[in-house]
Amino acid sequence: HNLTITQGKLFFHYNPKLCLSEIHKMEEVSGTKGRQERNDIALKTNGDQASCENELLKFSYIRTSFDKILLRWEPYWPPDFRDLLGFMLFYKEAPYQNVTEFDGQDACGSNSWTVVDIDPPLRSNDPKSQNHPGWLMRGLKPWTQYAIFVKTLVTFSDERRTYGAKSDIIYVQTDATNPSVPLDPISVSNSSSQIILKWKPPSDPNGNITHYLVFWERQAEDSELFELDYCLKGLKLPSRTWSPPFESEDSQKHNQSEYEDSAGECCSCPKTDSQILKELEESSFRKTFEDYLHNVVFVPRKTSSGTGAEDPRPSRKRRSLGDVGNVTVAVPTVAAFPNTSSTSVPTSPEEHRPFEKVVNKESLVISGLRHFTGYRIELQACNQDTPEERCSVAAYVSARTMPEAKADDIVGPVTHEIFENNVVHLMWQEPKEPNGLIVLYEVSYRRYGDEELHLCVSRKHFALERGCRLRGLSPGNYSVRIRATSLAGNGSWTEPTYFYVTDYLDVPSNIA
Rank of each mutant, 00 (worst) to 15 (best):
S203V: 05
D204M: 04
N206L: 07
N206R: 15
G207T: 01
N208F: 11
N208W: 15
H211Q: 04
L213A: 12
V214A: 03
W216D: 00
W216R: 10
W216T: 15
E217H: 04
E217Y: 15
R218A: 07
A220R: 08
A220K: 05
E221T: 03
S223Q: 14
S223Y: 09
E224A: 11
L225H: 08
F226V: 12
E227S: 12
L228W: 10
L232N: 15
L237N: 15
S239V: 12
S239R: 07
R240H: 09
T241V: 15
S243D: 09
P244C: 07
F246L: 13
F246G: 08
E247M: 08
S248R: 13
E249I: 05
D250T: 15
Q252P: 06
Q256P: 09
S257T: 06
Y259F: 12
E260Y: 15
E260W: 08
D261L: 08
S262I: 10
A263H: 07
A263Y: 10
C266M: 04
C266N: 14
C266H: 01
C267E: 05
C269F: 13
C269I: 04
K271P: 15
K271S: 04
K271E: 13
D273P: 14
D273A: 12
S274N: 10
Q275L: 06
Q275T: 12
I276F: 03
K278A: 15
L280V: 14
E281A: 09
E282A: 14
S283F: 06
R286E: 08
Y292C: 01
L293Q: 09
N295R: 12
V297G: 13
F298D: 08
F298I: 10
V299Y: 15
R301E: 09
S304G: 03
S304K: 13
S304N: 13
S305K: 08
S305Q: 12
G306A: 06
T307I: 06
T307M: 06
E310N: 14
D311T: 11
P312N: 11
P314K: 07
S315M: 10
K317G: 06
R318I: 13
R319Y: 06
G322H: 08
D323A: 08
D323F: 11
G325T: 15
G325E: 04
N326F: 06
V329G: 08
V329Y: 05
A330D: 02
V331Q: 13
P332Y: 04
P332F: 06
V334S: 10
V334C: 04
A336F: 10
A336N: 05
N339P: 11
N339S: 12
T340D: 12
T340H: 04
T343N: 14
T343Q: 10
S344Q: 04
V345K: 13
P346K: 11
E350R: 08
F355R: 08
F355I: 11
K357Y: 05
N360I: 13
K361S: 11
L364P: 00
L364R: 13
I366Y: 01
S367E: 13
R370V: 15
H371K: 04
H371Q: 12
F372R: 07
T373P: 00
G374I: 11
L379N: 02
A381K: 03
A381C: 00
Q384L: 04
D385R: 08
D385H: 14
D385N: 03
T386Y: 03
P387W: 14
P387T: 13
E388T: 06
C391Q: 01
V393E: 13
A395P: 02
A395N: 07
A395R: 11
A395T: 07
S398L: 04
S398H: 07
S398D: 13
A399G: 11
A399I: 13
R400V: 09
T401I: 05
T401Q: 00
M402V: 11
M402W: 15
P403Y: 10
E404T: 11
K406V: 14
I410M: 05
V411S: 09
V411L: 13
G412D: 10
P413G: 07
V414D: 00
T415L: 14
H416C: 11
E417G: 12
E417Q: 11
E417P: 02
F419Q: 14
F419V: 05
F419C: 09
E420K: 09
N422I: 03
V423K: 05
V424L: 08
M427H: 15
M427W: 10
M427V: 05
P431C: 09
K432N: 07
P434A: 04
P434Y: 03
N435W: 02
G436D: 14
L437E: 10
I438S: 03
I438C: 06
I438L: 11
V439K: 15
V439H: 07
L440D: 07
Y441T: 02
Y441C: 02
E442P: 01
V443P: 01
S444M: 06
S444R: 03
Y445T: 06
G449C: 10
D450S: 04
H454S: 02
C456V: 03
V457Q: 14
V457H: 02
S458L: 12
S458E: 09
F462S: 05
F462A: 05
F462C: 02
F462E: 02
F462T: 04
A463H: 09
A463P: 06
G467L: 04
C468G: 03
C468A: 08
C468F: 07
G472N: 12
L473K: 01
L473H: 01
S474T: 12
S474R: 09
P475S: 06
G476H: 00
Y478W: 09
S479W: 09
S479R: 07
R481Q: 15
R481C: 06
I482F: 01
R483K: 09
R483P: 00
A484V: 03
A484Q: 03
T485F: 09
T485N: 03
G489S: 03
W493L: 04
T494M: 01
T494D: 01
P496Y: 10
Y498V: 07
Y500E: 13
Y500G: 07
Y504K: 10
Y504A: 06
L505E: 12
